[in-house]
Design a protein around this nucleic acid. Sequence first.
DNA 1: TAAAAATCTTGATGCAGATCAGTTTTTTAT
DNA 2: ATAAAAAACTGATCTGCATCAAGATTTTTA
Lengths: 229, 229
Amino acid sequence: MGPYPNSCVVRTPEGTCFDLLSEEEKKLLDDNMVEVFYKKGEIICKQGSFASKIIFLAEGLVKVYLEGSPKNLVLTITPKNNLVGLPSIFEGNNTFLYSVSPYVDSWAKLIDINVFKQILRQNAKFASKIIDILNENTAQAYGRFFCLTRKQLHGRMSDILMCLSERIFKSLEYELPLSRNDLAELTGMSTESVIRLMKEFKDDGLIEVSGKKIRILDLQRMRKISEVG
Amino acid sequence: MGPYPNSCVVRTPEGTCFDLLSEEEKKLLDDNMVEVFYKKGEIICKQGSFASKIIFLAEGLVKVYLEGSPKNLVLTITPKNNLVGLPSIFEGNNTFLYSVSPYVDSWAKLIDINVFKQILRQNAKFASKIIDILNENTAQAYGRFFCLTRKQLHGRMSDILMCLSERIFKSLEYELPLSRNDLAELTGMSTESVIRLMKEFKDDGLIEVSGKKIRILDLQRMRKISEVG
DNA sequence: TAAAAATCTTGATGCAGATCAGTTTTTTAT
DNA sequence: ATAAAAAACTGATCTGCATCAAGATTTTTA
C-alpha cells in the first residue's frame, strides 16, 4: 500500500500562531472576536453560507464535512486549540466550503474574516505560519484521500481506530463520543459495515469493545491491516 | 448530488503572484532558479524524496499524483503558468507529498525552497497571495474528494470530460494527450471501465470520439449526469 | 416508569464495477 | 517495410460492499 504517514483524519493543534502577532494586532483580533457555545449536533457553520468568520475552537471536538445525501463526507476531525475554516478565505470565494458541527459540547471563538485577512496582509511571519498550517492540513487531506479511494473496509477501519487513539485520546483505550453512524461517515462505509468490522476486529482479538469504550489490543496487527489496505 | 462547483481536477493559472515582489526579491528569485526541460513520462519530482525546490511550470501539462500500486491517484492536473509543490513546504516536513510527471513535453522553473520561504517570511502581500492560491487548491481538492468517493462511474467520467473541455482546452472539441489508462487513474476506475463508458457516452450521443479527438455534443445532459452522480 | 425514539445488530439479497483472459488496433523500433 | 511492443477494446466472471428488512438494545422524553 505504500508509506502514507497521514491517512489520519485528525488535525493536530497548531499551538502558537497567535504569538507572532504584535500587541496591537492581538487587540484588534480581540476586539473583533466573539466567543460562542455550541451544543453537540448543532451547526457551527454551514457549507455554502456566507463565510464572515474564522473559527478558533477553544474547547471541544468538531467534524468538518461536506454535505451529501444520503451521507456526509467527513474531511477532518478537529480537536480544541485549532483553527477551522481557513481554506474558505481565498479571494473570489466568500462561502464556506464545508459544514462544521461539534461531536460534543464546544466553545468557539469567531474572528471577523476581514480583520483576519488584514492581519495576514501586514504580518508576513504570521502569514507564513498560516501557510504552514494550511499545508499540513493539505498533507493530511491527501493521505485521507488516498485512504478513502484506495483502501478497502478493513484498512479504513483500522486507520480510524488507530488515528483516534494516537491523535485525539493519546491512549490505547478511549471512550468514543461518536456513534456507529458517525464512524460510517468518517470511513466512507455503511453503518452496517462499521458494525460488522468492529465485531470482526473484536473476535480476532485486535480490539476490545464494551459499549462506547474501545481498547486497542494488537497495534502491530492493526498497522499491518492498515498497510495492506 | 448537491452543488459542488469544483469536482474538477484542473488548477487554474494563478497569474501574477510574482508581481507582488520587489525588484530585489525578483532578482533573488532569479538567481536561485534553474529552468529544466522534461520529456513526457519523466518524473519532475518524486513522492517521498527531499523537497528542495518549488516548481513553476512555464510550459506544458503535468499530473500531480500519489503513488499507489497497482494504480496511482491523480490529485490534480496542472497546466502552464502554475506553481506546483507548494503544499510540500510546511515546517517539519521536507519531502514531497506527491509525485509530478508531465503528460507532454514541459518546461519547469525550479526555485530554491529556502529562498522561497525567506521571501514568504518577509513579504506579507506575497504570502497572502500564496494563501489564496493554496486555498483555491484545497477547495478543488475537496470537490474532487467528494467526486471520487461519492459519485459513481458515470458521474466521474462526465466530470472529467467536461473539466478538460472547460479548464484546459477551452473548447468543446479537443485532442487528448492522455491515454485511457491516464483517464483511469484520473477518475479512479479501471481502464476497462473508462473504455466501456466512453463507448456508452458515444453511443448515447453525448460525445463524439475519433482517435485522440473528443468532442462534447450534449453538454446539458453531461451536466445532468455529473449532478446525479 | 412507561412509551417512544434512536441507535445498534444480524442475516439475506443484489449489483456496480473490478478482474481476468483474450483479440484487435495503433504506435514504436529496426 | 516489417516486426515487436504498447495501447485499445470486448465479453465472461467474480466479489466487496451497499442495501434491505427485521429485530434487539439503549437512550430520551413525557
